[in-house]
């Protein structure tokens, strides 16, 4: 059947899928933490608009990723049911959808909040869609290491929405996610490497082998654990956060140690799956505690107790 005359069976929910809602929820969460952690004041309505713009911008980059990667998405189990490989939406429509949402989110953020945060959002979309998706993903096993920067920008954008600046504190919030990304994705790729092999994506286990990947996972957890404690040491997070981040960091290293020490083959799958599950809990947990601490401090300030 000729679908070019517009006999689409795509429902609104297919367009929502294009926005990668699960990735978007993590983006919204970390951006919100960055926005609330920043010193200074922002009108709550404008803060809401800022978070919405960052969410839509993240969704737009997800759509652009699905537009470009439709060929490899069709080959992998995890992604074969996405709207383009499933044949419900055409690639051209997704490209238009992604570009339109990118433009609207960046311009709206620039007009209502500030130009710096709009530029950061534009750069994030560019970095994810062009630098990661088009260039690195298919060419180097360092793809997710460098590409991880795209996912690390949201708290920095949230911070810039309030302060109109990029400071050491927001760079630390960036670094926590940046250093967390490689062990998170490599743990996944240890038990999904067949899929990546089929789609010819050069993930670390396929290129350097699982033994090297497991060691690198361990090295990155050694980096991310102390960096995650920095907000406390630098004074923009309290002791509750500091102690929690330190404890979670030790646990993260222990999980990574078990992955590293497990022999290559079937025996490494279980510790890798456990570490992958914990990595999500880790990042979500430390950002949640940071958020909780900020909210408690703001509530105490409002009540005049501090």
């Amino acid at each position: 059947m000729d679908t070019s005359i517009g006999l689409s069976e795509a429902s609104a929910s297919d367009y929502v899928v294009l926005l990668k809602p699960r990735v978007m929820s993590l983006v919204v969460f970390t951006a919100l933490v960055g926005l609330l952690a920043a010193p200074g004041h922002i009108n709550p309505v404008l803060a809401g608009i800022a978070i919405l713009c960052i969410a839509v911008g993240a969704g737009a980059s997800g759509a652009l990723n699905m537009w470009y990667d439709a060929d490899i998405d069709a080959m992998m189990k995890r992604t074969a049911k996405r709207p383009i490989p499933a044949g419900r939406i055409s690639r051209e429509e997704v490209l238009t959808f992604g570009l339109l949402l990118s433009a609207f989110s960046v311009v709206t953020l620039g007009l209502f909040v500030n130009v710096l945060s709009a530029l950061l959002l534009a750069f994030t979309i560019f970095f994810y869609a062009v630098v990661y998706t088009m260039w690195l993903k298919r060419s180097t096993p360092q793809n997710i290491v460098i590409g991880g920067a795209a996912g690390s920008f949201p708290p920095m954008i949230g911070w810039a929405c309030v302060t109109n600046s990029v400071s050491m504190e927001s760079i630390v919030l960036f670094m926590i996610i940046f250093l967390w990304t490689p062990p998170h994705f490599w743990a996944l790729s240890l038990f999904m490497s067949d899929d990546y092999e089929k789609a010819k994506i050069p993930m670390m286990p396929n290129v350097m082998g699982p033994a090297s990947t497991k060691f690198q996972i361990f090295l990155y957890t050694l980096l991310v654990a102390p960096v995650a404690v920095l907000p406390w040491i630098m004074g923009f997070a309290g002791p509750a956060y500091g102690l929690f981040a330190a404890a979670m960091g030790v646990a993260f290293i222990v999980y990574a140690w078990r992955v590293w020490r497990a022999p290559v083959g079937k025996d490494m799958i279980k510790p890798a799956k456990k570490m992958f599950a914990f990595s999500i809990l880790y990042l979500f947990g430390i950002y949640a505690v940071l958020l909780g601490e900020i909210l408690v401090r703001k509530a105490l300030l409002l009540a005049g107790l501090i």
Partner: peptide
């Protein structure tokens, strides 16, 4: 499917109008 897309588009447009209106007041 067409109906679902139309409703979603209408909601998105309405939301954008409200955002610009409320955002202008806030700013």
């Amino acid at each position: 499917a067409q109906r679902s897309r139309s409703i979603a588009l209408a909601l998105a447009l309405a939301a954008f109008v409200i955002i610009v209106y409320v955002g202008t007041w806030a700013k």
